[in-house]
Design a protein around this nucleic acid. Structure first.
Length: 741
DNA sequence: CGGCTAGTCATTTTT
DNA sequence: TGACTAGCCG
């Protein structure tokens, strides 16, 4: 197979580049992944590089998975190199080497919640006032430090606050180490520290990974950059791919300078620009480009496309957010009526709070949707509880998990008891788990608590023995039963408790699957996957439903039909960005990312009036409209033949005089639109035999319910179902996938 | 221990 | 406005 066959000249150039640093500036929709995948295949198949000498790094598991799949298609199954996220690549290294830094190889990985809990304890121990020094503040400060690659000793102690942060950071790290745990930031930072402090280890990995590729390079933070630079060493076979215009994670420590200054940092670098877009219509691409073109800190580039001009971008200013949602819902319905597929539709918003009213509207119209990044499976209470048991079995030093389960379900071990054991542990310099055993025999506690601790200790010891003997699914199943966790939930007899039980069942299925596919890799491996993957691969990706997500999670995706809602000043761009030019540039990039997700049709909407935190707001249209050439927009007023001449002034506004101009523009954008989209009139029809009043049905999302009303017939038939969990829902029978119970 | 209430806080969140 | 949480009381 000819690897170069379907590549354009710059793509070929990037694929064929040999040794030495390579920077690929890949605009939106320019075939970036295609280039990386082909480059990897080229290294292996043409240059004869052994796959194990190649390391490809991405930011998400999803991206890594996709890339691996595509590489395997080119080089054959099992022949792909290590393609991993930054975090999982680091875990791999740390599992082998972390003893050099004073941790055990079975270290736990704390998520944000776990580490904040630990931080709270640290703040309390240092007798700091929680009001003046909230744990959250330290949490983000420490996170920033870790992103920047700073150890506690690197912090300036000039002012009081800095000093406190350094103090808490130091104590926090000590506590983490005592728990034999690391947080997300540590995964990267400890790896860098390992390389700094143990040059021979670094040399080993430099020798191993001779070819390195980094995807989404614009999102790397300074430690990640340092890590990459260390690994690339003197061979400098480093290929980074990114787009400065799509850098939207500055607030999380991503440093856009990593990509802007790459050429200075790696003299002699080969730079390839991928500027042909294969995704969007010319209208969409040009409009998006004009929004981001206003930014100062960007690499000059011009995206172009051979695609047709396509339809105009629809702009609508609606009365309020509910009206806006109904508009979206109606347009989606129209798309479906024309024979369109719901999987082609995505709705993006700036803040999660906006999703709710959209959900309501789609539910009311019976249009199925799925929300990306909503409640994560592994973050559910009951799942975290059972996982905490597993974590203690795997790593008894894990104090946070131990404290979580010691009285869950309730077994009469209160705070006072735990505190006493904690003091004992501190005094003896042993772990809480070890102190447990001592306290359950010594004279520290009264007979009651002592007995309860002893019982808990015995329970855990039994499970530890069991853990070595049975499968993970079996272990967890017995854990759920024998700790009384299941009984407690069953006793509640509420829909919520039933949900929880169902979730636990799902956890068991995930464990079974892991037992089957991973070949006895064991508890540590499973917990690691949980920590790093954060969500269960849900099989609903192929379900016919519209997709809702924040603009941030939209990066890397594409849809034929895209809605961006809430295009208003103070919402998008967000209020917090209004007085910070750097943040404003990021908002612009975010807008660019959102718009360039659309392949064929783009809808931009906003609301004149919006309730935010119970407050009415009247926001003018987003300033991003200032930069979209007027001829690319479909405004309703145009159809009515009004006001088009006013558009001559469009686009001339300078950033400096924004506020007054804003009002002019707002006036221009006030378009005559039906204030309301009334509910569809429907004729009840009870003769239909597929569904009937009073029928008990099950819905994939809402569970079991009873049909209270049937409306319409054929494709448009709707039912109102009274669900046990969520109450009444109106559903389109065709889509609801109702199952008779 | 657990259930309630009053007070707080509200951008985005790949791992 | 509404979701979450710390702290109090039964």
């Amino acid at each position: 197979m000819n690897l170069l066959h379907h590549l354009n000249p710059p793509q070929k150039e990037a694929v064929l580049h040999g040794e030495g640093p390579l920077l690929i500036l890949a605009g939106a929709g320019s075939g970036k992944t295609r280039v990386i995948v082909h480059r990897i295949a080229h290294l292996i198949k043409e240059l004869g590089i052994p796959p194990w000498q190649i390391l490809a790094v991405t930011f998400t598991n999803k991206a890594a998975g996709e890339m691996r799949e595509r590489v395997e298609k080119l080089v054959g199954p099992g022949e792909a190199p290590l393609i991993a996220t930054f975090h999982s690549a680091c875990v791999r290294i740390l599992r082998r080497e972390i003893q050099r830094l004073g941790y055990d190889p079975n270290f736990a990985i704390y998520d944000d919640k776990d580490s904040e809990k630990l931080l709270k304890e640290v703040v309390a121990e240092l007798h700091l006032d929680e009001k003046r020094f909230p744990a959250k503040m330290f949490s983000s400060a420490i996170d920033e430090c870790k992103n920047a690659g700073l150890l506690p000793g690197d912090l300036p102690t000039s002012d009081y606050m800095q000093e406190k942060i350094a103090q808490v950071y130091t104590a926090y790290q000590a506590r983490l180490q005592k728990c034999n745990a690391v947080d997300f930031g540590d995964l990267i930072l400890l790896t860098v520290r390992l390389f700094d402090e143990h040059p021979e280890v670094l040399r080993h990995y430099q020798d191993r990974f001779r070819w390195i590729l980094v995807d989404e390079y614009q999102d790397t933070n300074p430690v990640q950059y340092r890590l990459v630079k260390l690994l690339a060493g003197s061979l400098r076979n480093l290929c980074v791919v990114g787009d400065d215009d799509q850098s939207i994670y500055r607030w999380r420590g991503a440093d856009i300078r990593n990509i802007l200054d790459f050429e200075q940092d790696f003299p002699g670098v080969k730079v390839v620009k991928l500027e042909q877009n294969y995704r969007s219509t010319r209208t969409i691409l040009t409009a998006a480009g004009s929004v981001v073109a206003r930014n100062r800190g960007r690499k000059p580039k011009t995206l172009w496309t051979d695609n047709p001009l396509g339809e105009k971008i629809v702009y609508r200013r609606l009365t309020d957010e509910r009206d806006e949602a109904r508009f979206v819902s109606r347009e989606i319905e129209r798309h479906v009526r024309k024979g369109g597929d719901l999987r082609d539709v995505a709705v993006f918003y700036r803040t999660n709070a906006q999703s709710r009213v959209l959900e309501d509207a789609l539910v009311a119209d019976g249009i199925p949707y799925r929300m990306v990044g909503a409640v994560r499976f592994y973050e559910r209470l009951e799942i975290k509880d059972i996982l905490a048991y597993l974590k203690v079995l795997d790593n008894p030093a894990d104090e946070i998990s131990l404290k979580r389960i010691i009285n869950t379900p309730a077994r009469g071990i209160g705070h006072a008891t735990v505190d006493k054991v904690g003091e004992l542990a501190a005094a003896r310099g042993i772990t809480l788990y070890e102190a447990l055993r001592e306290a359950s025999s010594g004279g520290l506690l009264g007979a009651g608590p002592r007995g309860k601790l002893a019982a808990f200790g015995a329970l855990m010891e039994n499970f530890r023995i069991l853990a070595g003997a049975v499968s993970l699914a079996e272990l967890a199943s017995r854990l759920i039963q024998e700790t009384g966790y299941a009984d407690r939930l069953k006793g509640e007899r509420t829909p919520e408790a039933d949900d929880r039980l169902a979730n636990l069942q799902e956890l068991l299925s995930a464990l079974e699957e892991f037992d089957r596919s991973s070949g006895e890799k064991g508890l540590s491996a499973f917990l690691e996957q949980v920590a790093l993957v954060s969500d269960l691969e849900r099989s609903d990706a192929g379900v016919e439903a519209a997709t809702f997500m924040t603009l941030h999670s939209a990066k890397g995706l594409e849809f034929p039909l895209v809605f961006i809602v809430g295009m208003e000043e103070r919402l998008f761009p967000h209020v917090r960005a209004l007085d910070d030019p750097h943040q404003m540039e990021e908002e612009r990039r975010l807008c660019y990312v959102g718009m360039t997700r659309a392949k064929e049709r783009l809808f931009l909407t906003n609301a004149r009036r919006r309730r935010i935190f119970g407050q009415e707001q009247f926001n003018s249209p987003s300033r991003f409209f200032d930069d979209i050439p007027r001829e690319f927009l479909d405004l309703e007023e145009e159809r009515q033949g009004a006001g088009s001449s006013q558009w001559g002034t469009f686009g001339r506004f300078s950033q400096g005089s924004h506020d007054t101009d804003r009002h002019n523009l707002a006036a221009i954008f006030e378009t005559e639109i039906e204030p309301d989209f009334p509910e569809v009139e429907v004729v009840p029809d009870e003769a239909e035999d597929a569904v009937y009043l009073g029928m008990k049905v099950r819905h994939g999302k809402f569970g079991v319910g009873t049909i209270r009303k049937v409306e319409g017939e054929g494709d448009n038939q709707k039912v109102i179902v009274w669900f046990n969990t969520v109450g009444p829902k109106k559903l389109l029978v065709r889509f609801a996938g109702l199952e008779r119970v």
